[in-house]
Design a protein around this nucleic acid. Structure first.
Ligand code: ZN
Ligand code: ZN
Ligand code: ZN
Ligand code: ZN
Lengths: 136, 136
DNA sequence: CGCAATCTTGTAATGAGATAACATCACCTA
DNA sequence: TAGGTGATGTTATCTCATTACAAGATTGCG
């Protein structure tokens, strides 16, 4: 099975639990927050959560936010995690908006090429205020 | 004093020690690695290092690499940490190349504006192989 | 000078994020 | 049924970062 064809029904028990926790959250969750939420479902140790997260990230269903040490469910239809994803993280309400932008992806590839850098993964995380939190 | 006019001579003892450690390193260092290197210079506890790092980052002399939980001395002449900085991190030799790109900065600002996102800070970290490590 | 305000430093303890090591279990297949 | 593979469970440990409190050092008045 390809890394991008996973549906929810393919997931193992722990993966499903973690996926559900992230999907039903408004914002990103840390591994330990997920663990706390799933204590009653048999989740006992951090490693159980991290293992599930590793797989979910590998399948492209979940993204890791490097600047937050947290994880978020992908809400981007047909998301290709190999492409350059832009995360806009609200510092007030913690909600995350995930978008792609062809021009920016192209720009980053061009920059890497011009520096002869063999690009493997791009992290673009923007911090600021989402529209709803700009009360002005 | 403005946040961007700090010279090395303005720094306190601990700030200078940490700055020197980062400046003489080929790649990024974690706070605890810096601590270990400075044990003989009176540095005893993590907080001493983190306090110095906080100031150095504030002054724009040091950048934090979110995807590594590590810090690197700025080697960009006239670096304005308010601008969009692109870090290219080699996954083989751990060296970091720091560049700016006007087109990319403009692109990011445009994306944020189009989403009505009040941009505060941009994190752009590219992982891959530097030219020297592409032996192919 | 004397004193207060402020900044920097020192130290211990704790919180938060992530992984190593090892044992066990479920499932598929030869 | 024996063996391989992947998922799980459990403990301990490691790395990264902050809280809380105390003690010096510095500056700027009155
Ligand atoms: Zn996505
Ligand atoms: Zn918001
Ligand atoms: Zn810089
Ligand atoms: Zn390299």
């Amino acid at each position: 099975m390809s890394a991008h064809s996973h549906t929810h029904s393919d997931l193992t028990k722990n993966q499903s639990l973690v996926m559900d926790a992230l999907s039903s959250s408004e914002g990103p969750l840390s591994a330990y927050t997920i663990l706390d939420q799933l204590r009653d479902n048999g989740m006992r140790a951090p490693l159980q959560v991290y293992r599930a997260l590793d797989k979910l990230v590998e399948y492209g269903l979940v993204h890791r936010l490097e600047s937050l040490n947290a994880f978020v469910a992908c809400r981007h239809p047909n998301c290709d995690s190999n492409k350059t994803i832009i995360f806009m993280i609200c510092e007030a309400c913690d909600k995350v908006n995930e978008i792609t932008d062809a021009a920016l992806a192209k720009n980053i590839n061009k920059i890497a090429a011009s520096e002869k850098f063999a690009l493997n993964k791009s992290t673009v995380e923007l911090r600021g205020l989402c529209p709803a939190c700009q009360t002005d």
